[in-house]
Lab assay of single mutants.
Amino acid sequence: KYLVLALYDYQEKSPREVTMKKGDILTLLNSTNKDWWKVEVNGRQGFVPAAYVKYL
């Protein structure tokens, strides 16, 4: 498993997404889509914009 760092705040806009705050450390679950990565944060799984996170 990889960890990624939230570069920006992101507010979920659909039930498939998750909210994150700048500085959050997220567990990367799937990065096959170049635009949306599946992550786990605070016990929830969902998608965030790939451009908003970077590998640690």
Results as ranks from 00 to 15, higher is better:
residue 22 K to D: 03
residue 26 L to F: 06
residue 16 R to Y: 15
residue 43 G to I: 02
residue 13 K to W: 04
residue 41 V to H: 14
residue 54 K to E: 11
residue 52 Y to E: 02
residue 53 V to N: 00
residue 47 F to R: 03
residue 37 W to G: 00
residue 22 K to G: 06
residue 14 S to V: 05
residue 32 T to Q: 13
residue 53 V to D: 00
residue 54 K to H: 11
residue 52 Y to T: 07
residue 44 R to E: 06
residue 9 D to S: 09
residue 27 T to G: 06
residue 2 Y to W: 14
residue 6 A to F: 03
residue 44 R to H: 08
residue 20 M to P: 00
residue 2 Y to C: 15
residue 25 I to K: 05
residue 45 Q to V: 14
residue 26 L to M: 14
residue 27 T to P: 13
residue 45 Q to P: 07
residue 25 I to D: 01
residue 20 M to Y: 02
residue 27 T to D: 05
residue 45 Q to A: 13
residue 16 R to N: 15
residue 52 Y to W: 06
residue 3 L to K: 12
residue 46 G to N: 01
residue 10 Y to R: 02
residue 9 D to H: 05
residue 26 L to P: 01
residue 48 V to F: 00
residue 41 V to T: 11
residue 7 L to Y: 04
residue 40 E to S: 10
residue 56 L to A: 08
residue 16 R to I: 13
residue 49 P to R: 04
residue 41 V to G: 08
residue 44 R to F: 06
residue 34 K to M: 10
residue 27 T to K: 12
residue 19 T to I: 03
residue 39 V to Y: 00
residue 41 V to F: 15
residue 19 T to L: 03
residue 37 W to P: 03
residue 43 G to Y: 05
residue 4 V to W: 08
residue 16 R to P: 06
residue 5 L to D: 01
residue 30 N to L: 09
residue 34 K to D: 13
residue 3 L to M: 12
residue 43 G to H: 07
residue 33 N to Y: 08
residue 4 V to E: 00
residue 52 Y to I: 06
residue 20 M to R: 00
residue 56 L to G: 05
residue 26 L to Y: 10
residue 35 D to I: 14
residue 23 G to A: 03
residue 45 Q to F: 08
residue 53 V to C: 11
residue 53 V to E: 00
residue 29 L to S: 03
residue 6 A to C: 10
residue 37 W to E: 01
residue 21 K to Y: 10
residue 30 N to S: 14
residue 36 W to F: 07
residue 25 I to M: 08
residue 7 L to T: 06
residue 10 Y to F: 08
residue 16 R to E: 14
residue 45 Q to N: 08
residue 41 V to L: 15
residue 8 Y to T: 10
residue 43 G to F: 05
residue 32 T to G: 11
residue 3 L to N: 07
residue 8 Y to G: 06
residue 10 Y to E: 01
residue 26 L to K: 00
residue 5 L to T: 09
residue 30 N to A: 10
residue 22 K to L: 05
residue 15 P to Y: 09
residue 21 K to D: 04
residue 22 K to Q: 11
residue 5 L to K: 09
residue 43 G to K: 06
residue 35 D to E: 13
residue 35 D to V: 15
residue 46 G to A: 04
residue 4 V to M: 09
residue 28 L to I: 06
residue 27 T to Y: 13
residue 17 E to Y: 06
residue 11 Q to H: 14
residue 26 L to E: 00
residue 5 L to V: 15
residue 14 S to I: 05
residue 54 K to P: 01
residue 5 L to E: 14
residue 46 G to L: 04
residue 33 N to W: 07
